[in-house]
């Protein structure tokens, strides 16, 4: 025998009896031990693959369904009013005239206010969290900002109605208009009701801030250490490192985060509906009540009396859908470029 020598051999009786014990398991369908059955097909695996493929297909199908259903429902109004649907500011359900310009303008203005206020704060906070905060601050603060993202829209709205609106009416609006004399400009003019485009913009800024902060932080943390170290090694201060090395590297991701926040602001419904005042009017003054596309739908949908009105609201939904799809598509693309992954 050409058996190589082995230091110790452990011969246990078990090792010999094992095959007999297990024969009924291994070879059970085919009979004799010499013949082993390995034939068969992999039906279950095909079923499984088909199933998860089917689940995955649900995502594009759902999006397509939303697109088609809302588009078809809004088509009669879009066909009847044509391009004027986007530019006319007459919204008269009684006369059957529908133009969504005030709502579209309101949506854009409130979103711009939100981004102008939220972006610097969110970005500053994100830089602080990713580069300067001691670790005992970092965790709880990140948790708090995440928590801000988890507060439901309707709760922001509730707070807006009973805290923000009185504050604006009694203090902020008179202060802006009279004390700062901004009433001389067309933007801060008129009576201080409270419910206004300004209120909607402010509450949106609070709501989108955590989204922008979370994405920016993620993108900043994804900047390789070597980028920071290279700049520090050249003698840059920590702040110069941020502006010179980190932010340029993360730029498109941060812009993506801001646009993602924009997507949220454009489609945000409940809180805005509760504080914007819901009026079809185009006014230059931020003190005036207004409408956004989302709040228009939320407010009038259940009262839509005839088919044209309903179709017009669906058409508003379709325009909103198109805008947010484009905005979100751009944002995702930018965030993916820099390697961030989260929502």
């Amino acid at each position: 025998m050409q058996t190589p020598s082995l230091p110790a051999t452990v011969t246990t009786p078990e090792s010999r009896t094992l095959p007999t014990l297990a024969t009924p398991l291994a070879g059970s369908p085919a009979a004799p031990p010499s013949r082993v059955s390995i034939e068969g097909t992999v039906v279950a695996d095909r079923v499984y693959r088909a199933a998860i493929f089917g689940f995955a297909l649900c995502v594009p199908i759902l999006l397509l369904l939303i697109f088609v259903e809302v588009g078809v429902a809004g088509w009669p109004a879009l066909r009847q009013f044509g391009f004027g649907f986007l530019t006319s500011s007459t919204w008269d359900p009684v006369a059957g005239q529908f133009g969504a310009a005030p709502a579209i303008a309101g949506t854009i203005i409130t979103s711009i206010i939100a981004l102008v206020i939220a972006t610097p704060l969110a970005l500053g906070g994100a830089i602080f969290l990713s580069d300067f905060a001691p670790s005992w601050v970092r965790q709880p603060l990140a948790f708090l900002i995440d928590l801000l993202a988890a507060v439901p829209s309707v709760v922001y709205g509730l707070w807006g109605v009973f805290f923000l609106l009185p504050l604006l009416r009694e203090d902020v609006m008179p202060f802006l208009r009279d004390t700062l004399h901004l009433g001389a400009t067309p933007f801060f003019r008129g009576p201080a009701y409270g419910p206004s485009v300004l209120a909607a913009g402010l509450i949106l800024s609070i709501m989108v801030l955590p989204y922008i902060a979370a994405v920016s932080r993620e993108v900043l943390m994804a900047v390789p250490r070597s980028q920071r170290e290279a700049a520090l090694a050249l003698g840059a201060t920590r702040w110069e490192t941020i502006t010179g090395a980190v932010i340029p590297f993360a730029r498109s991701g941060i812009i993506g985060g801001v646009i993602l926040g924009l997507g949220r602001a454009l489609g945000e419904t409940m809180a805005v509906t509760m504080v914007i005042g819901n009026r079809h009017e185009l006014s230059a003054s931020l003190f005036a009540p207004g409408y956004t596309m989302a709040s228009l739908i939320a407010n009038e949908f259940s009262e839509a009396t005839n088919d044209v009105h309903l179709s017009a609201l669906m058409a508003v939904g379709f325009v909103l859908l198109l805008i947010t799809l484009v905005v979100n598509g751009i944002a995702r693309w930018l965030v993916w470029q820099t390697g961030g992954s989260r929502s």
């Binding site: 010499s34 013949r35 082993v36 059955s37 390995i38 034939e39 068969g40 992999v42």
Partner: peptide, 15 residues
């Protein structure tokens, strides 16, 4: 394997 080609189409790799 036991005289059977394991890459023949009627063989289930799992079995």
């Amino acid at each position: 394997f036991h005289g059977q080609n394991i890459y023949s189409p009627d063989v289930d790799p799992i079995a």
